[in-house]
């Protein structure tokens, strides 16, 4: 039983909202799906909303970090939105800083930030 995460396109951006706890397979499948979608749509930006996610371990963090770097290679900027306080704290305590990641409070802010980044 594997769920696929839906990826929506809005003008130049892709919008992804992760609604369920990520297991390893889903996370890896998502990585492939997103890159494939970037390829076919030539989108310039991605907003990845994690609001419902209540924990991220080092594996998922690595997958997310990889996705962001890979998207960057394909010419797309990624903004992560909605990281919960508890998740942020655990990530920091785990020692995962996600240093070059652009973040925003929620989807709306994320889209704004992405548009601004794309203008620069």
């Amino acid at each position: 039983m594997m769920t696929r995460i839906p990826i929506l396109k809005l003008r130049e951006c892709l919008i992804v909202s992760i609604q369920w706890e990520l297991d390893d397979q889903t996370a890896l499948a998502f990585q492939e799906d997103l890159l494939a979608k970037l390829h076919t749509t030539a989108a310039r930006g991605v907003v990845l909303d994690l609001t419902p996610i209540d924990f991220i371990d080092s594996f998922i963090a690595k997958v997310l970090g990889d996705v962001i770097n890979m998207s960057g290679l394909m010419g797309a900027k990624v903004v992560i939105t909605g990281i919960q306080p508890a998740v942020a704290i655990t990530l920091i305590e785990l020692g995962i800083r996600l240093e070059n990641v652009v973040t925003a409070l929620d989807l709306e802010n994320g889209l704004e930030k992405l548009e601004r980044e794309l203008e620069d």
Binding site: P85, A88, L91, I92, L98, A104, D106
Partner: peptide
């Protein structure tokens, strides 16, 4: 520093 990092993660 940790607190500032965490704040960055939540998007501020």
């Amino acid at each position: 520093i940790q607190a500032a990092d965490a704040v960055r993660l939540v998007g501020a």
